[in-house]
Amino acid sequence: MKKQSKLILFIILIAGITLFTAGCGNKLDEGDILTAVDTAVAETDTAKAAILQQTVDAEAAFTPTYTPAPTSTNTPIPEPTSTSTTEPGDFEPPLVQVSLDTNCRSGPGKVYPYLGGLFVGEESTVHGIDPSGAWYYIANPDIEDEYCWIWGYYAETTGDTEPLPIYTPGPTPDTAPSFTAEFRELETCNGSWRVEFTIDNTGPVTLESISVHVLDTVTDEQTGLSQMNSFMAAGGCDLAADEDLLFPGESGFTISFDLSEDPSDHYSFATITACTQENMAGNCFVSEFAFTP
């Protein structure tokens, strides 16, 4: 802009000199005038090119990089093996109830995938214990003719547990979580804006908690770091939990905290973290990516 102003002033000055010299009977060399004007125009074009290059360089420097999520394979977990000589038909399986809703997993530990749950008021049969005696191998309350492990801390058994076979679990599974996330839509709620994302659990383990952070690079506004132990229902201003858990192969939704300014068409940056336990605990996976609402 400064170069353009100088050019205008220069042309006005030349015009004034021309009129003045013409009035005095002197003739100003036309070639000198054109040369001076061409020089000023060239300097202006050079300045414009420099400003444009600075803008391009600044945008390139600001663009974040995104590393694709590593892929993982879901390896089936072997059935536990028994070191006991007790045969399943030799005794009546004891019954088990819990005083607190308890997850039922494919192995005796939180690193194993979630398969179901034994809830307060429900009852199941116990078919084995792990070598430590802390976990029970029970009939899965949610899937007929399948079995899973519950932690015995909240469990109360009825019947004789002495004959129970001792099961040695198979090797721990690949516990590295993985997911893909992408922008879904922009919600306008009570004069503010929320960004909604689709989450696909591409890993071998269940996701139990998630956090979202969004940065609008145009206004420099950023959301608070949301942390949730559930995956939200899509759409609407009234946030409602849709799924507490996101199992391998399932899709869900998550949403950011509010932005006070409309981020539509603004280059933005999202950081989404999902973990295998509640309250952002266990194994976690982070996805960072750019998007434009």
Rank of each mutant, 00 (worst) to 15 (best):
S256I: 08
E288M: 04
L239Q: 08
A40T: 07
V195T: 03
S5F: 15
Y66Q: 14
P94V: 12
S226W: 09
A176S: 13
T67A: 02
S82M: 08
A69L: 05
W149A: 01
P293D: 10
K6Q: 10
K3G: 05
D90Y: 06
G89D: 15
P93W: 06
T71Y: 14
F10W: 09
A281H: 10
S226K: 13
K110S: 13
T63L: 14
G128W: 15
D101W: 13
I210F: 01
C104A: 07
Y154S: 08
M232S: 10
T35W: 09
D200T: 13
E185W: 03
S84Q: 11
G133K: 07
S268R: 01
C148N: 02
A22N: 12
L246S: 00
T180P: 01
I143M: 10
A274I: 02
Y167W: 09
D38R: 15
E122P: 02
F179W: 06
T198G: 09
C104W: 06
L186W: 03
V205C: 07
Q222T: 11
F91C: 06
T217A: 04
I199K: 05
D29S: 15
C237M: 03
A15N: 08
D258S: 15
A22V: 05
Y136Q: 11
T18Q: 12
L100E: 04
I8M: 07
A241S: 14
P248L: 03
S211W: 14
E162M: 07
G16S: 08
T44A: 14
